[in-house]
Design a protein around this nucleic acid. Structure first.
Lengths: 175, 175
DNA sequence: TGGAGCATGTAATGAGTTACATGATTGG
DNA sequence: CCAATCATGTAACTCATTACATGCTCCA
């Protein structure tokens, strides 16, 4: 029996509902559509495509130049995707190395971490700015509220994080 | 030459600065201290301890009952930890399967996801409540602001997420 | 026309999770 | 004293990242 889909594989399957794509294309599609909250790499894409082909969820269509293979979703694949969609999604996981470092801040002289803190804050502020722009563009392109939920998540998340940075005790913010 | 520490190994090393511990003890220590934003499992702990022992960053002290081995940090280990602390921490990564599912919501009839949304919201609300209590207790125990930064991160994060849930479009909140 | 850079994929390595095994403790 | 549970560790597996290889395009 085919093993259960993992979330990465399921996403690829989802994208293939809009037409066949090669591994490379899928990677770009995924980065654009879900890259902000779901990281994935080329190797994963190829691995999952191969595994799904084994299970009959996708089929490799014609082989083009330089081994380029376009995959198409099968009926079985559509069914597997639908089933994945209707299972309770797992909880999120966050891994933030900066928090780890802060948890051990007592092992460093005061002020030592201020530069890192500033750098990370800048990253989050930039992302937040990017999300604001993306929202404007999406609205201009006629997006409905339901199309904005993940963007909205990112916006709220980054807002909270930036506010957290700005509320850090002085000894962590000043070198 | 010893390979660079990963964040998980470095954390273990950090905890060993407070005295020798066995793998099992370390796991509990870590869950208590950083478990809210850094998941780790027994297997990882033992693997990293073994690798660090190979590299001379820790030494296995006496072997107690049922192969229980307490590890102690060495001078080399202290140095490696200090170096890890002074490298720019990597960016955070978030993987939230629920967002993935929402990104593909158009493949399901409206209202289909409301139950999942409600369930996830409850998880976040409960965590938020737990953080509030933890803060009260920490303050009662004399914690300084710098001791609360990770807890504060969690609080702000969960607050933002709960607010995001409450702002979702109706078709995602109502079955 | 050749070499710089892009497109495409595979292999090797590292990290994380789940399943398994077994010795100690303890309450009934 | 035996069954349940806790403590402790290992093995197997899945997932993710990094490094490598090589074919194609296109323009200087």
């Amino acid at each position: 029996m085919p093993r259960a889909l993992n979330a990465t594989a399921a996403s690829l399957l989802g994208f293939l509902h809009d037409g066949p794509q090669s591994g490379y294309d899928l990677l770009r599609t995924a980065e654009r559509a879900i890259g902000d909250f779901w990281s994935l790499t080329r190797s994963q894409v190829y691995r999952e495509l191969a595994a799904m082909a084994d299970d009959g969820l996708v089929v490799a269509a014609e082989v083009g130049a330089r081994d380029r293979r376009a995959y198409a979703v099968t009926d079985e694949g559509r069914e597997a995707f639908r089933q994945w969609l209707s299972r309770l999604p797992a909880e999120e996981q966050i891994r933030y190395p900066l928090l780890l470092v802060l948890a051990f801040a007592r092992h460093l002289p005061p002020g030592e971490l201020a530069a890192f803190v500033a750098q990370h804050r800048a990253v989050h502020a930039a992302r937040l700015e990017g999300y604001h722009q993306a929202r404007v563009e999406a609205l201009a392109a006629g997006a409905r509220p339901v199309d904005l939920v993940t963007l909205d998540f990112g916006t709220r998340y980054e807002t909270a994080v930036v506010e957290w940075f700005d509320a850090l005790p002085a000894e962590l913010r000043e070198g």
